[in-house]
Design a protein around this nucleic acid. Sequence first.
RNA 1: GGCCCUGUCGUCUAGAGGCCUAGGACACGGCCCUUUCAAGGCCGCGACACGGGUUCGAAUCCCGUCAGGGUCACCA
Length: 515
Amino acid sequence: MSIRTRFAPSPTGYLHIGGVRTALFNWLLTKRHAGTFVLRIEDTDTERNKPEALQPILDGFRWLGIQWDEGPEVNGPYAPYFQSQRFDTYKDAALRMLAEGHAYPDYMTKEQLDADRKAAEAAKKPYIHRGPHRDTSPAECVKLYEATPAALRLKVPAGRSVVIDDIIRGRVEVQTDTIGDPVILRADSRPLYNFAVVVDDVAMKITHVVRAAEHLSNTPTQVLIYEALQYPQPTFAHVPVVNEPGSKKKLSKRDMKKFVTVDVKAKLRAIGYTDEQIESRDDLNPATVAFYRELGYLPTAIVNYLARLGWSLDDKAEKIDLADMIANFALERVNSAPASFDPDKLYWLAGEYMKELPLKDKLVGCLPYLQRAGMIGATPSDEEKRKLATIITAAGDRLKLFSDVLTYGASFYRADPTYETKAVEKRLKKAGAADLLRAFAADLAKVDPWDAATVDRCLHDFCASRNIKSAELVHPVRVAATGAEVGIGLFDTLAILGRDETARRIQLALKLVQI
RNA sequence: GGCCCUGUCGUCUAGAGGCCUAGGACACGGCCCUUUCAAGGCCGCGACACGGGUUCGAAUCCCGUCAGGGUCACCA
């Protein structure tokens, strides 16, 4: 039998990085076994739902290359894939449970429930809810419910245990006496999570339920529902949660905000975001995939990184291409301990993938950043494309993210360089620097042809004739030409700028130092 | 607090009783290369939570302790 897995997000915000990791494991498992991956939208909580949150989730998955076989927009044999459109199915199942004595109506008010809960808490006793009609006969319960609909609760069987055989965790046993009777259907017939998942997983013929470990404690309840409905149970695998860097807490949107470091902030500002946007926007939060997309991370790197969080191929492999991941993925090799998200390692991996990206793809990836900055127009000319290609080539391995093109290339597009105070102090105001620059500027005319190799040779000849180390000239020239201390190779820089612009910028720098 | 899960370098991980003087990767430190920054090369730092068993032999199996986490809704 072919395997079927699913990922079931609720549309409450941007795609969470931890959720993607779970979805990825589902997806890899199905690809490995040529199965079917279902995307189901769990939008039963009509109050919290944000319909506009759906598109970013779908976009996020598509960007990562995680395509679902059944679900929103693609549909499939078990449509609809939105729980909000399946209320009748849940109601039918719940009514059957009611008739067969596995569920009962509960007329207790929220106030009563809260009071009971508080009382139990005060008495330091665990609160395990058992409704008044728990032991009322099925026929009586049906009559009651038909007269006045109420919330329907599962009648958790007393005095036995529930065993879960989890691929990742092994055998987990829980006593039913520790589980309260959960509501499965509200009085208005909207289902609750624990109930809707079971009904849908069965309806959609899901064979492997692979989800985050935080759901492990829900599983016994769900198993009881499978039993009550006489449904076959799927195979369970609870993957460890993803922790926030440097802590042992689950990765959360609120806490991840602090990983917008000064460095990241600078990048986002360079892209064009205001401080206020950086602070408030969800898609600029490192807990969401959108954030990495905005910064120009390669999706392949993200997928690789996330797969390695809790799973490994062997004792060596870090960079694992998709084909190898698919060919080798196994739930049996997923760790049971939580893993911390490490932005440093992800950044490194992003660079590894960028290294092997063909130039034309780098061009396509970098272009939007320059366009958004107003440095290149909407329809770039061939010459603009050539120039950008030269910059990207010269940037080489420095380019790890597409947005890095702004770090290494922006100065070529500005009318004047933005002179950094620190760089000017250190390199231009140094004794003798101005004189050297003046002399070198006078020599510029001799460089022929004006290309990186020739500039290189001329600069070294110049230094040799004056008996100085090339570094003494290289540093001031770099700052004069770009305004910054770090950047791509100086000779490439000057070659791209051209003779006239180089000369102009040296004069500009000279003027700056004289003031 | 109840229930459940988890403990190998700071982090991700390898480890299925002898291949372990515990391997790799990121990060960090040093050196080399070098015009800066990257990249690359070499070297270094650095872990089996603790205590009992079982066994000729334990990171690995069992028990306990401790620590961390998840979850306890008419949220998902």
